[in-house]
Structures are given as structure tokens and as C-alpha cells.
């Protein structure tokens, strides 16, 4: 274990350099495109430097569409967490049920697939009729998207992964309650966590789209779409930057850490 860990750290040093190089390429390309657009289209295109300057202005208190940038961020994150939380609360139990029982799978999975084919923002009509303008329709759209991701990943994963463990348990003479709680559920941990990961990412992306159309009057998505009228594209770039940075932080850093901990706990290794 110790050996693995230290070799991992050693590798990660050179990989860290490459990560920095990768970001550098991104910003250089951005700068190049900005220059190109300014020269050939004669349109002011926010450069990385302008964007960061604007970011600092906004962070130090300049309001964006009448609201501090913090509030936009906090509102976005709250909608995301609320939609995600509700979807997980319903989606995981349902996914487990569908993964456990073939009859339930046959009955409900087609419905989930129908829902899955419709992209989040396309639910706008339903969302507006159900909830009117504001927060709730955005949360609803996030909910729908996370919901089907969680159900499908949990159910299909649990079905596949658990079969061999369930078979082994049957052979060892276990009763059905023991099989469900001591074997099926732990075996389903891996797909559940994958479902959470996919749902988290999908939910974050649809959150931005939902705020553009649901009339939330705050949030990162809302601030981006408002630039169509205000022509404050630099602020829109700041918001894109925040969407990306916060998305990466929550999914690739925080959730990845939690995920690794859970996997170690269950003794399962990540498959992909």
C-alpha cells in the first residue's frame, strides 16, 4: 500500500506539470481566438486577461444585473443541489427496485427511457405549467435530468454486477432478506455511485440551461443569457469560467474523493 501511494505521488508530480501545460494551451488558444476575432471581425472579444480583471471587479463587489456575483453562484448551486437531492432521494430507491425485480424493470424502464430521450430544457413547457416562472421550474428540469441518469445507471448496473454475488449467496443457502440487504445492496454500491457521478454532471449542465429559460432572475445561466441584451460578454465569460471551475471542483475533486472513499469501504475498485 505504502509503495503504491508514494509511486502514485511521484507520477502525479509530472502529471501535475502536464495539467498546468494543458491549462496553458487552453488560455493561449483563447487569447489567439480573441485576437483573431478582433482583427478579422472587428468585434471586441474578451481576452483571458480582460475576463480575469472583470472577475476581480465582480468579486470585489460590483453587482451583475443588480445582484452580487456571490448570490448568482449561490443561487445556481442551491438549485442544483435541490434538484439533485430530490432526484437522488427518489431515483436511488427506484433504481434499486428496478435492478432487483425483472417485473418492475419491464414495467418502469420503458418510461424512464422515454424521459431520457427528452433533453432537460425541452421540459420547459411542462415546468412552466406545473410551477410558473422562477426557481421551481429550473429545479424541476434539473430533477428530471438527474433522475433518469440515477435510475438507469443504478438499475442496469445493479442488475449486472449483483447477479454473480446473488447467485453465490443463493448457493450458500442465504434467505432472501439477507440476499437483499447483505449482498444485493452492497454490490449495488458501485452503480449507485456511478449514477450519482453522472447525475451530478448532467444536473450541473442542465442547471445553466434551465436558468436561461425558466425566468429565475438570478444565477450563472441567467447572467450568461442576459448578455444577449446587455452585450456585457465579458461578464458572460466570467460566468462561464465559474460554471466550469465550480463544476470541476465539485465533480472532479470533491465528489471524486468521496467516491474513492466509498469504493475503498466496500472493497470494490472503480471499473472505468
Amino acid at each position: 500500500m505504502e509503495v503504491n501511494l508514494s509511486s502514485f505521488r511521484r507520477i502525479s508530480l509530472s502529471r501535475k506539470t502536464r495539467l498546468i501545460a494543458s491549462l496553458l494551451i487552453l488560455f493561449l488558444a483563447w487569447e489567439a481566438i480573441a485576437v483573431f476575432v478582433e482583427v478579422f471581425r472587428n468585434v471586441p472579444f474578451p481576452t483571458p486577461l480582460e475576463t480575469f480583471t472583470r472577475l476581480v471587479d465582480l468579486i470585489t463587489g460590483e453587482p451583475l444585473y443588480g445582484i452580487p456575483i456571490y448570490k448568482h453562484l449561490v443561487d445556481s448551486v442551491s438549485r442544483w443541489i435541490l434538484g439533485f437531492g430530490l432526484a437522488v432521494a427518489v431515483g436511488i430507491p427506484l433504481g434499486i427496485l428496478l435492478g432487483y425485480s425483472t417485473a418492475m424493470w419491464d414495467l418502469f424502464m420503458p418510461i424512464i427511457y422515454v424521459i431520457q430521450t427528452i433533453p432537460g430544457p425541452a421540459w420547459i413547457a411542462v415546468a412552466l405549467m406545473l410551477f410558473g416562472l422562477g426557481n421551481a421550474p429550473a429545479v424541476f428540469m434539473i430533477f428530471i435530468v438527474v433522475f433518469h441518469a440515477v435510475v438507469i445507471t443504478t438499475a442496469s448496473g445493479a442488475r449486472g454486477i449483483s447477479r454473480r454475488y446473488v447467485n453465490a449467496a443463493k448457493m450458500l443457502g442465504a434467505d432472501s432478506a439477507t440476499i437483499f440487504f447483505k449482498v444485493f445492496l452492497p454490490a449495488a454500491t458501485l452503480p449507485i455511485v456511478s449514477g450519482l457521478r453522472i447525475g451530478l454532471g448532467n444536473g450541473w449542465r442542465v442547471m445553466v440551461a434551465a436558468e436561461m429559460i425558466a425566468g429565475t432572475a438570478s444565477g450563472l445561466g441567467y447572467s450568461i443569457i442576459e448578455s444577449r441584451w446587455s452585450l456585457d460578454f465579458t461578464s458572460a465569460f466570467v460566468c462561464m469560467l465559474l460554471v466550469s471551475a465550480f463544476g470541476l471542483l465539485t465533480q472532479r475533486v470533491i465528489f471524486a474523493k468521496i467516491e474513492r472513499r466509498i469504493m475503498r469501504r466496500v472493497g470494490l475498485m472503480e471499473v472505468s
Binding site: R164, Y165, N167, A168, A169, R265, G267, L268
Partner: peptide, 9 residues
């Protein structure tokens, strides 16, 4: 079994 079926948890 042909594959591993020890419960990993």
C-alpha cells in the same frame, strides 16, 4: 465459480 464471487465488502 469460474469468476470471483467472494463478497468484496
Amino acid at each position: 465459480f469460474q469468476e470471483e464471487t467472494l463478497f468484496p465488502w
